[in-house]
Write a protein that binds this DNA or RNA. Structure first.
Lengths: 345, 345
DNA sequence: TTGAAAGCGCTAACAG
DNA sequence: CTGTTAGCGCTTTCAA
């Protein structure tokens, strides 16, 4: 009676079901548990009946108290609205669901303090596992996960100093820069610039290294290199567009898709045509690229596979927490289109 | 000792903290509870110390057992990768975080069965509240939330038959169709088509109604109306592009952004120029529209405000569950650009 | 086959 | 001020 005073009727519990079915709570528990236990079929039926009648749903939180899994996985990314992440998340989510987990998708918005706060909340929820794409690629918060013994996988952004200490899924940034540059070199270009995000994250730096390596292979010395970096904004990208033209290069690697957007908008607004005026290769495959004509030659990262891999690696870690960390790096491919023309000196 | 046999060390609990601080578990509980209780400052300090030393984090699941809130809010959308939803989610998430909640973001992928499964999982987690954008605008699953007394807000897709029975936040679909059409009519167009998604969702139908209403205001009879609908794919959109041209209209309302993408790609690939060859107004503001030249006149929906409103309405419902349902409909605005030319008969 | 009962980690009377 | 204790809903051992 006192309970009825509350605004909400209390949720139906195992006890209510047991009473209605005329059995004990243990029996009800077993009916809804994964663990098998011999049970007279008609009793089982009665329990199921009663549960359906009352609309019983097992309380996962209570269940977790007794050492059962919580049924929650977290995915914490740094740039929620970035399609690169969104695409991976879609697959992570569907795999997790197949395995009976709900996924909590959070956004640190590239802010380590925010990320820390979110992780603390997630730890308070006693999540079963976490896929983390660390804000600004900072390691400190990953340590939290380790400290609380939560199985986790680092996604896409590695910690160079302790690379092999974490489970990791990412793509080969070096290779993406290398492939993009080599593609231009093979087309005869020699004055090639690289533009991208001037970030604390090693990813773009790795791409720059790939660019440099390719340049070296063609015996191009350091003084021929042109690396333009700037903040992660459209405006900065536009600015890089202008600088790219001022540099007088015949080709450019657009090394990061958000800044590339600004650069290409600048080109478009100033009647700079590709590949006539400048040849370009972009790292990434944002949706807006579908509208560019001529179409842009891109370096494609295998987002779907990466998402699937991150999820299955997480499950492996959850099953065998003592497993030594593994790192899985995915290669990229060149999607050749019409933004590169042959260059004859 | 037996505990140590497990692969994972057991999480530190209130008991461990109490022991180290040399106090009772009740005291520890109060230190970490929102409820105030007079407490000697130095004791409080000792508890905090001990907790920090052990790395104690309150178990939200256990806490929820005693009627405390769980600290989880769910957002379940039908099209996870659609920027319209993503943008709203970003704001919902940040508001929820301010209030101390973790947001679980799920994707039903426009499949009611999937949606039901997810909702059951969420109910099992005893989420504190839910924002639901129902797959195919079907009502059946919203009923689940009501049945389990979970505070909820329906987002963006209304149930016409029982509109006022649910808390709702959405934009004015009728008005968006109306404004788009009137904009074209005011520019002198009379042969105007409407294209969009042939969906079971009332939203696009409402937009069509808006289109019709505007046409009527200009004394255009039903036989001058041209409504083209098709599936939610780029290919279907391209097809609509071709049909739009075949219809010989001078202007079109692109009533849904995913099909609009196909239509505009078709135009682009067939050298159909806007506004020279056809004037267009699009409902929606997808990111790719930034690249279209001339720029497309759009109907903008206030995504940010809608997200914030959905979140705050949910909090209101959570505080006063008995509150009669309210519906909040947001108006749209015309963002005028260069895709409409004056039409002289 | 089934049930009784002892907790899981935490909250909140209630008693000192 | 602070500690004791009875649960919250569920799992699982042990006994019947």
């Amino acid at each position: 009676m006192r309970q009825r005073d509350k605004r909400l009727a209390p949720a139906v519990t195992i006890k209510d079901v047991a009473k209605l079915a005329g059995t004990s709570i243990a029996t009800v528990s077993y009916v809804f548990s994964e663990r098998e236990r011999p049970l007279r079929p008609e009793l089982r039926e009665k329990v199921l009946q009663a549960a359906a009648e009352l609309g019983y749903v097992k309380n996962a939180a209570a269940s977790s108290l007794k050492g059962k899994r919580r049924g929650i996985l977290a995915v914490l990314v740094a740039q929620f609205a970035n399609t690169f992440f969104t695409r991976m998340c879609v697959d992570i989510e569907s795999i997790a669901r197949e395995q009976g987990y709900v996924v909590t998708l959070c956004n640190s918005d590239e802010d380590p303090a925010q990320e820390r706060l979110i992780l603390e909340r997630l730890i308070a929820q006693r999540i079963d596992g976490c896929i983390l794409c660390p804000a600004l690629a900072r390691e400190e918060n990953a340590t939290l996960l380790r400290q609380y013994q939560i199985p986790y996988v680092i996604l896409e952004r590695a910690f160079p100093a302790s690379f092999s200490e974490h489970n990791f899924v990412g793509h080969d940034n070096f290779q993406s820069g290398y492939l993009a540059t080599r593609h231009l070199l093979e087309a005869g270009h020699r004055k090639i610039a690289f533009s991208g995000w001037d970030s604390p994250i090693p990813n773009v730096r790795e791409r720059v290294n790939g660019y440099r390596a390719a340049m070296r292979e063609y015996r191009l010395t350091a003084d021929t290199e042109r690396v333009l970096l700037g903040p992660l904004t459209e405006v900065a990208g536009r600015d890089m567009g202008a600088r790219l033209l001022a540099e007088g290069v015949s080709a450019a690697v657009l090394g990061q898709q958000d800044t590339a957007k600004g650069t290409l908008l600048h080109f478009q607004d100033h009647n700079v045509r590709w590949p006539q005026d400048i040849s370009v290769v972009m790292i990434g495959t944002p949706e807006w690229a579908d509208f560019l004509r001529p179409r842009i030659t891109c370096i494609q990262r295998p987002e779907k596979q990466m998402g699937r891999e991150a999820a299955s690696l997480l499950f492996e870690v959850m099953h065998v927490p003592s497993r030594p960390p593994v790192q899985r790096i995915f290669p990229c491919v060149v999607i050749e289109r019409e933004s590169v023309k042959r260059w004859e000196e």
